[in-house]
Design a protein around this nucleic acid. Structure first.
Length: 108
DNA sequence: ACATTGACTAATT
DNA sequence: TAATTAGCCAATG
């Protein structure tokens, strides 16, 4: 029988979204950490793959809780992300342009 | 099969 | 602190 008619990319997509859903409001995590969590299950993928998935995911997911290692949300919707994060009470840096990962990071 | 691309990261300057 | 460089992994043309 065919237990997996699921394309690898779709499986990876699903796993990434699962991890993203676990990030609590008011906290944030990085592409790299999500990639590691997914790799623990699927054994493949890296930060760039997570980014690719998020780009495809669109709305319906809390994409603004995923930031790069420096704490900056994706440049595509930087202002929108900062607005959402602020609304959730996510700790930001003094200049208010990035997430203060030292306090806000959530480990998968 | 090869080259290009991308919501990345870490090290260097 | 910010800009640049090199490395990385899979999707796409």
């Amino acid at each position: 029988m065919d237990p997996t008619p699921i394309p690898p990319a779709e499986e990876y997509l699903a796993e990434v979204l699962t991890v993203v859903e676990r990030v609590p409001a008011g906290r944030a995590t990085t592409y790299g950490l999500v990639a590691e969590a997914v790799a623990d299950v699927l054994g493949r993928g890296g930060p760039r793959q997570v980014g690719q998935v998020m780009a495809r995911a669109g709305s319906g997911v809390a994409w603004w809780r995923i930031v790069n290692a420096a704490g900056s949300p994706p440049a595509h919707h930087l202002d929108a992300a900062l607005t959402e994060l602020r609304a959730e009470g996510c700790p930001l840096t003094r200049d208010g342009r990035r997430v203060d990962l030292r306090r806000a990071v959530w480990l998968p």
